[in-house]
Amino acid sequence: MAFIDYYKILGIDKNASDKDIKSAYRKLARQYHPDLNPNDTEANKKFQQINEANEVLSDPEKRQKYDKYGENWQHGEEYEKYAQQQRAQGNRQYSGFGGGQGQAFESFENFGGGDFSDFFESMFGGGARGGRQAKYRGQDYNAELQLNLRDILEPHKQTLTVNGKNIRITIPAGVENDQTIKITGHGGPGVNGGPAGDLYITFKIAPDPNFKRDGANLHATAKLDLYTAVLGGEVTIETLSGKVKIKVGAETQNGVTVKLKGKGLPVYKHEGQHGDLLVTYDIQMPKNLTEKQKDLFTELRKEGEK
């Protein structure tokens, strides 16, 4: 693990007084505190470092050990003894009752873990953070769930594994990309009879190659041959729920958009309501014309110029 320069983290020199440390910590904590930087993982990481540096440097005994062993702390006999003593102490997470929404997790299997660096854990033990022992509400968990447009056509149940526990959730129909829902009580367990934290799930909806989304409406392009565009006819359109045939009026212009009512996505939290599918025609010019076709087009041009 990398040696972490706590003085550098707090932006102070090695001779800094307790007052200097407190002042530097306070200033940086106000800048990077997770409650002031919600959903900012970089700020949260920085805050952990600042907190860790302060925990060590504001404690004269810990600071002395840190100053003495520095980069070679692992060879210190005293350090070993000290670390063992500290490991015997209880555990504590950074916040009192709740954990806040500060931490971002990559996957559902990745919950938990300490808030401090490996360096800190090795140097001072996992529970050497002092402070209040009382806890109440459990920690909040954050997670991401990857979906595609077809997954949100109707509400469906899915079982997720969070910290080894299976949680059955209902994914609401029509959920938006980057939308976060709260599953109350599925975060970390509460302590001293307190409620469990909450689970926050952010949905990531992958772009679809055929449909562009605008709220509950979908946009798509349909190729239309020249003859159908000019004379009218029928065209088969792909929708999320299957293929549909629609009538094409005569003299349909390129770029015209037609609306297929109710063929879009479900409207979030409005059961039975759907957006529309807006189909823009892309008229295809004929290629590799036969001589006969060329003659007919020439005739058409002459007719048009009359």
Partner: peptide, 17 residues
Amino acid sequence: ESELQKLEQMIRLHHEL
């Protein structure tokens, strides 16, 4: 209970900052 998260955030701001 629904106020806990908000309240705890305020207490952290008060205590820690």
